[in-house]
Amino acid sequence: MKTIMLVCSAGMSTSLLVNKIKAIVSKKGLEVNIIAASEAEAKSYQGRIDVLLLGPQVKFLLKKMEDLMTPQGTKVAVINSLSYGTLDGEAVLKQALELL
């Protein structure tokens, strides 16, 4: 079971995206767990997730999160802004799976 976490500043816009991705995941029957978190919550997941995707608006967290998560084997990236802007769950999931 792989875990993908989406992070935005207040956890507001990502939750919608997470729900969309969850729907796709269950439809495809993938072994993937999707969660949403705010910046503050993200740290507590250190070492427990496989991919961490950042909303473009919190791009500034990239360096910090990489320092924090990469040593534990977590892949960190910023969500493609077009996928994010159009809340394209399919595209975001694809981006995440490619990182795995």
């Binding site: 207040a10 473009p56 791009k59 994010y84 802007g85």
Partner: peptide, 10 residues
């Protein structure tokens, strides 16, 4: 520009 997209959504 990419960050702006995120902020727009936010």
């Amino acid at each position: 520009a990419e960050v702006k997209v995120g902020i727009v959504l936010h």
